[in-house]
């Protein structure tokens, strides 16, 4: 796995606590006096880069394309499933992208076209690419992080967000 030494600016961490911690706390009866108005308005989630991965015409059904998102140390896969799925992108609603680091222990997942699953050689976890990365069986306590995709009018495919924490990082975006 390639290593990259990105500097994380402190705002990222502060945003987490204010975003998630206080947002969650607001759900209960405990009322906290709001901070003075000069405090920066935190974002609820990290800000993701928009990154071009490929063009629709580069993809063939069941031929996985290696990608990296949100940065080069986070490997993933871009897939054309050949069948429309929920959250599928592109004209046929069948393009999806996932992290390929197993959220259990970080081993690289392998795509098996025969049943459109990603499989972990470490401890046998399996994820269903047609069901948003649902863990079919395994030891991960998350379903597989999926990359949100946008396809523009030229057919260029962009990744723009992630819906679960990627293995091996406590913030999905490591750099500012």
């Amino acid at each position: 796995m390639s290593k990259r030494c990105d500097k994380l600016v402190d705002t990222g961490r502060r945003q987490f606590l204010r975003g998630t911690g206080i947002a969650a706390a607001a759900g209960i009866a405990t009322v906290v006096t709001p901070a003075p108005g000069k405090a920066a308005v935190p974002l609820a989630r990290v800000t993701y880069p928009s990154q071009k991965l490929a063009n629709v015409k580069d993809l063939k059904t069941d031929e996985p394309l290696d990608i990296n998102y949100p940065d080069k140390d986070s490997p993933g896969v871009l897939l054309k499933l050949g069948k429309a799925v929920e959250n599928g992108a592109g004209p046929d609603r069948d393009i999806v992208a996932f992290s390929t680091l197993c959220p259990h222990k970080g081993f690289p997942l392998n795509y098996v076209a025969a049943d459109k699953s990603l499989n972990c050689p470490g401890h046998y976890s399996r994820f269903d690419c047609e069901k948003g990365g649902m863990e079919i069986w395994g030891q991960a306590t998350q379903n597989l992080p999926q990359f949100a995709l946008r396809v523009d009018s030229k057919g260029d495919i962009y990744a723009e967000a992630v819906d679960e924490l990627i293995y091996g990082r406590l913030s999905n975006v490591l750099s500012a």
């Binding site: 990259r4 030494c5 990105d6 994380l8 091996g168």
Partner: peptide, 22 residues
Amino acid sequence: ADLSQQQAAETVNWFSPSMHNI
């Protein structure tokens, strides 16, 4: 550990969302 870097497989320096609570 320097957590600004991606940690390798089987790292001791990571935990999943299910391992955290308040």
